[in-house]
Design a protein around this nucleic acid. Structure first.
Length: 480
RNA sequence: GGUCCCAUCGUCUAACGGUUAGGACACCAGGUUUUCAUCCUGGCAACUCGGGUUCGAUUCCCGAUGGGAUCACCA
């Protein structure tokens, strides 16, 4: 065992996508490794053949990459402790099992699943927890690989251990049992394989959800039997469903992390949000860069209670992150989010428009709604004027007069941002109207959108010809 | 049913015996020459309950209550 290098791991099972409820099991150990000069390892735990999903592994790795969670050893990158896929390590598990068999601490389970179910039912009827060791066979057959191999717990006692997040934890003998090491299909169970792998891969900190707490005494008893010094065992609180009733899972509509990607959430925001659920640095800072997270993260500041998943907060953080991006960076990220109408438009112009709407984006997916009228002629919708609190007071003639005045003044303008602003101010004077009337009218007449950026900027980017044309169109449509 | 974990505004959280219990999201009101957004200002809003310990408990201890996890040839 290397003594001081921190080595943490994320060990997903390829049974589906990573959802937001369990991605912290990757994030926190990664932050810890990165912040302590350690290594982060990804290991695929594919010992359950029934639940194996083709393609899930790639999906999981893609998710990690999108978030910026990189790994030093694991699939695709290799490493000195491979293979990093459990199904390729079965021979190694048999070696570990042999150690226990030789010590008389493992035995073949001669019962059929139905018989075990009967034992279980018996325990349930007696309102007792089911413990296989109460039904331990007296003379088990020699293990030939066709039956499950079980661990034989000999030291039945209370275990106490220290968890960097949860503090001192303990559990009584009820938590100890003869659990299965190797299944009848030859594959190891998680309970056995992860202990062997963590030892072989020299993992120093095992980080996982708190659903593992009740199992930890079993692991501790196995570590003892194997004469292994356990790594630091860290349990993380759950992310709860929005109703707060249970841990967030796919059945509660927990979205995959990549789904948020498609909805225009930035990885920085997702990471920041995930970390802030259950962790803070003790100050009032809310927005953390990945680098800051790495520098400041520690397990002793992780919350012990579960946190509900609040999308509002995620959306707010995403807006914060979008506004922090410089325009070129933002531009590179919105490639897939432009409206259809922007297809033939050049980069410089798109960038110009993006700059105008940057403050208004809550997600990248808001882009089409905010920018469409820059690229294509909007549909005239006169109800926007008749439903407007201020404008509805004006007669059609008054509106047409105002639009004509605007058209004439703008026609004479140099049409840069400042000149337009001057022009608009002048219009206020000569028409005697308030901005609420005049600016609203022009804004609607050129965009026919519920909202848009500052008027002078909008007009400048649209260009004189477009602006004049659209105002004329509005005038024409008023007469109908 | 057994075992184990948790408990501050609606939500995410700060506080490590003495505070007007702080911040953020959401919400409400106002401001920034139109709208929406940003930004700024203000407002609403919490220590689950009961016992101890202490001069003094949100904070420490015990109990209750509530919530959660777990008791697989799943991880």
């Amino acid at each position: 065992m290397s003594d001081s290098i921190v080595r943490t791991r994320f060990a997903p099972s390829p049974t589906g996508y990573i959802h937001v409820g369990n991605v912290r099991a990757a994030l926190f150990p990664w932050l810890f490794a990165r912040g302590n000069g350690g290594k982060f390892i990804v290991r695929i735990e594919d010992t359950d053949q029934a639940r194996y999903v083709e393609g899930a592994q790639d999906l999981i790795l893609e998710t990690l990459k999108w978030l910026g969670i990189d790994w030093d050893e694991g699939p695709q990158v290799g490493g000195d402790y491979g293979p990093y896929v459990q199904s390729e390590r079965v021979e190694r598990y048999k070696q570990w099992a042999q150690i226990l068999i030789d010590k008389g601490l493992a035995y073949a389970d001669p019962y059929t699943p139905e018989q075990v179910d009967a034992f279980r039912a018996e325990a349930k009827a007696a309102k007792q927890p089911f413990l296989f060791r109460n039904f331990r066979p007296e003379n088990p057959p020699v293990w030939d690989g066709s039956m499950p191999l079980r661990f034989k717990v000999t030291d039945i006692k209370r275990y106490t251990w220290n968890d960097p997040v949860m503090g001192e934890l303990s559990a009584g003998p009820e938590a100890l049992d003869d659990f299965i090491l190797i299944k009848s299909d030859g594959m190891p169970t998680y309970n056995f394989a992860h202990i062997a792998d963590d030892k072989d891969m020299e993992i120093t900190h095992v980080v996982r959800g708190l659903e593992y707490i009740p199992s930890i005494p079993k692991y501790l008893s196995l570590y003892e039997a194997l004469e292994i010094t356990p790594p630091v065992l860290v349990c993380l609180p759950h992310i709860m469903a929005p109703d707060g009733k249970k841990k967030l899972g796919k059945r509660d509509g927990a979205k995959s992390v990549t789904e948020y990607k498609n909805e225009g959430i930035l990885p920085e925001a997702m990471l920041n949000f995930l970390a802030s659920m259950g962790w803070n640095d003790g100050t009032e800072q809310e927005i953390f860069s990945v680098q800051e997270l790495i520098e400041k993260f520690s397990f002793d500041r992780v919350q012990r209670s579960g946190a509900r998943f609040d999308e509002n907060r995620l959306l707010w953080m995403n807006g914060q992150w979008i506004r922090r991006l410089d325009i070129d960076d933002l531009f590179n990220r919105v490639t897939d989010f432009w409206p259809e109408s922007a297809k033939e438009v050049g980069d410089e112009r798109k960038k110009q428009i993006l700059q105008l709407v940057q403050d208004r984006l809550k997600t990248l997916a808001d882009l089409p709604m905010l920018s469409d009228y820059f690229f294509t002629e909007p549909t005239v919708d006169w109800s926007m004027i008749t439903d407007n609190k201020q404008l509805s007071k004006l007669s059609t003639d008054q509106i047409v007069d105002l639009l004509n005045a605007a058209k004439n003044e703008l026609l004479a303008s140099d049409f840069d941002t400042d000149a337009i602003q001057e022009c608009l101010n002048h219009l206020l004077e000569i028409t005697g109207q308030k901005p609420a009337i005049l600016f609203s009218l022009i804004r609607i007449a050129v965009s026919w959108a519920p909202f848009s950026p500052a008027l002078n900027d909008t007009l400048a980017v649209l260009g004189k010809n477009t602006v004049i044309g659209r105002i004329q169109l509005a005038i024409d449509s008023a007469r109908q």
